[in-house]
Amino acid sequence: MTPSVAFGTDIDERTEAVEQTSTDVLTAPDIPWNLVIWNDPVNLMSYVSYVFQSYFGYSESKAHKLMMEVHRKGRSIVAHGSKEQVEQHAVAMHGFGLWATVEKAASGNEAPGKGGRQRG
């Protein structure tokens, strides 16, 4: 992503621990699909964070954390749900110009947040 000009100082210091990723807002244990946002060098960090706040209703800190995860790790699971739910989110994300894909939560990918049961 492109760093925001006015982007602040407090880059979060969290470790790269696998547990500290993802979100559980839309999670139910039996729901098997993830919405993934991928990093790209164009989208503004501020814009990505704004979209996470305005579309998903995430808090500023949570949106920031997910945005930083996209930026640093290349991708982040930002929502869970049924296939239909995450596809609907993907349509909205493509509308905003974010690079979003959907995947089965148990597809065995090596990305952080696999399983998506962690506290967000």
Binding site: D40, E87, A90, H94, G97, W99, A100, T101, V102, E103
Partner: peptide, 9 residues
């Protein structure tokens, strides 16, 4: 394609 990306990897 960037404006209308594939939804599955």
């Amino acid at each position: 394609l960037r404006l209308l990306p594939n939804v599955m990897k």
